[in-house]
Write a protein that binds this DNA or RNA. Structure first.
Length: 373
DNA sequence: ATTGAAGTACACG
DNA sequence: CTAACGCGTGTACTTCAAT
């Protein structure tokens, strides 16, 4: 039986400035004021970073992942709030339930990819209609119903991107934030992608961007705007493969809007860990050991409450004052009950770092490779 | 030839 | 000097060793 390939219709739903939106919803008198969720700025001496800034705060130049000290300098009068994970989980669960409900309504598939993002693939009659007409009216209505329901029930806004695959949907949802809707028809994919900065492609982070700029910079016409997808698209697949290996192939495809990933893939947890940054860099075992043991206890407790019983790998991580980061790990058979053995192993791994006697900024503890029933 | 283990690099929200 | 830079998780890659 021969199968006619149809265009897929995939929604990417992205909750706007999610952590900050949750805080606004809990405290409506914050509305209109700059809100920064993240580490304690401590009058500008804090060591953490911004988790989320609302759009008012973004006008001051504040954004996610920015050092909190810098955010404080840009807007000392902003409302700085700690991360309230329990609240965000509650809101997220409620929103995801709404989205899952919609995906059922349209006989579709659903995949949550983070606390504030999910994909829905529309199947069934609505999909067939769209594939005949390419008229966006129907998809637009569905998207607006989704956004209205989230707003009515949970009082936060979402941006939605619609495209023929997960890659395009994801980039589209980011295109008109906040509270935006962007529909990219299958015929318009290249037109949509070409003018975007390469940094907008998932998988291109700071390093890959720099590498690509080195390659593209040597050719003319990459203007002050920086490299765009259309520039990237000029590079032959062979060249990308030589520079980036498999990743290069995926860059080649992304630049052309090609993405064959299936919506609905589930992934089981591979590892659980926790890390801690000291108030000040330290070389003292007196300070470090109690932290390591409390990390260990916390991690084992959350693994236990998630239902895990045994695992195979223990990893200890150290970041020195210079920001050089290292890990040491040891494999074996560990029972979560056996706190003593686990602590001894963690200590043994830590020892190899301490002996080098350099000041430490951060310590982490992680377990992984859970064994099943 | 394949698999496991250890360690690093990079990305994302 | 040229800054500031968390946390939790995943994937990919390299290197070395054992099966």
């Amino acid at each position: 039986m021969k199968r006619i390939s149809k265009n897929r219709i995939i929604f990417h739903v992205d909750l706007d400035a999610f952590f900050a939106s949750c805080e606004e919803r809990e405290s409506p008198h914050f509305r209109g004021k700059p809100i920064v969720v993240g580490a304690d700025p401590k009058q500008g001496t804090g060591r953490g970073v911004v988790s989320t800034a609302n759009y008012t705060a973004r006008k001051f130049g504040i954004h996610s992942a920015m050092p909190i000290s810098q955010a404080y300098r840009l807007c000392p009068s902003a409302i700085f709030l700690p991360v309230n994970g329990a609240l965000y989980s509650r809101v997220s669960n409620a929103v995801m339930a709404i989205l899952q409900d919609f995906s059922q309504t349209y006989k579709g598939k659903f995949e949550q990819t983070s606390i504030d993002e999910a994909y829905i693939e529309i199947l069934g009659r609505a999909a067939s209609a769209y594939n005949r007409s390419y008229s966006c009216d129907c998809m637009q209505k569905i998207a607006n119903r989704i956004r209205s329901k989230i707003l009515d029930r949970e009082r936060i806004t979402a941006s939605i991107g619609i495209g023929p695959n997960m890659l395009v949907a994801k980039i589209a949802s980011d295109f008109q934030k906040p509270n935006g809707l962007t529909i990219v028809k299958p015929t318009d994919v290249q037109k949509f992608l070409d003018p975007l900065p390469i940094r907008k492609l998932p998988g291109i982070g700071p390093k890959t961007e720099t590498e690509l700029m080195k390659i593209l910079g040597s050719s003319p016409s990459t203007g002050a705007e920086g490299a765009t997808v259309s520039h990237l698209r000029k590079l032959p697949q062979s060249l990308l493969y030589e520079h980036f290996g498999r990743h290069g192939i995926s860059l080649y495809e992304s630049a052309r809007g090609i993405d064959n990933r299936i919506v609905g893939k589930t992934t089981e947890t591979k590892s659980i860990g926790e890390e801690y940054t000291f108030k000040e860099d330290t070389g003292s075992a007196r300070e470090i050991l109690p932290i390591l043991f409390s990390l260990t206890k916390n991690v084992l407790r959350s693994a236990q409450s998630a239902g895990y019983k045994d695992f195979k790998t223990i990893t200890v991580k150290i970041r020195y004052a210079n920001f050089k980061t290292h890990t040491k790990s040891l494999s074996g058979n560990y029972s979560i009950e056996d706190i003593n053995k686990i602590e001894q192993t963690a200590l043994k791994l830590l020892w190899r770092f301490i002996s080098s006697l350099k000041k430490i900024r951060l310590i982490g503890f992680r377990i992984g490779r859970f064994t099943k029933g």
